[in-house]
């Protein structure tokens, strides 16, 4: 139920996957919208506060997710040899981009040594600060890696739909239903 098997994803992986998907798409739209806000908009300070807070939680969730993935069985890949290789590389790229987007975002806010508040609940301290041009460079990386992540995630979704509707594989179902872990 909770753990992965060779036939399906457990509830931990499923929850992390869909929560991440929701957060990534939501953070991208929020980030897009908030960077266009005028100085006098009531959301000018509030929207980045939500963006930073959710982003930091997603970073912690992603680190847990990667650990879980490394120490848990991975359900069998499906499709042709080429498809399986492409899927494997694509998944690695998504994890790398997730970390790149969130770490670069963190580095914008901490560029002057200030920590990042998460919902005024706790503060993530600044670990790397005062690099030359840190906020601007991290900002560029944040934008382009977020864009790349979104494109890759879209490709990932299309590939999943192709497996489901054209190849009749169960890869989409097993990412929705933890009962597939028990199937032989």
């Amino acid at each position: 139920m909770w753990r992965n098997t060779r036939t399906g994803w457990g509830l931990v992986s499923i929850t992390l996957h869909w929560a991440s998907a929701l957060a990534v798409v939501g953070l991208f739209m929020l980030g897009w919208w908030m960077t266009g806000l005028g100085y006098f908009d009531p959301w000018y300070n509030l929207a980045p506060w939500w963006h930073r807070s959710i982003g930091m939680l997603l970073l912690f969730a992603t680190l847990l997710r990667i650990l879980w993935r490394l120490f848990q069985p991975t359900p069998q890949a499906q499709g042709s040899r080429f498809e399986r290789l492409a899927a494997h590389l694509g998944h690695i790229a998504i994890y790398v981009l997730l970390l790149t987007v969130m770490v670069s975002g963190y580095l914008i806010s901490t560029a002057r040594g200030r920590g990042v508040s998460v919902f005024n609940w706790f503060e993530v301290p600044a670990l790397v600060s005062h690099l030359p041009n840190q906020a601007s460079i991290a900002g560029e990386i944040h934008w382009y890696s977020a864009l790349a992540l979104l494109l890759l995630a879209a490709g990932h979704a299309l590939a999943a739909l192709k497996h489901h509707f054209i190849d009749r594989h169960d890869i989409l179902v097993r990412m929705l239903n933890p009962a597939r872990t028990r199937r032989r």
Binding site: S109, R112, G139
Partner: peptide
């Protein structure tokens, strides 16, 4: 430097 990373950016 105005002592606020996001403002500086």
């Amino acid at each position: 430097n105005s002592n606020h990373a996001e403002r500086d950016r």
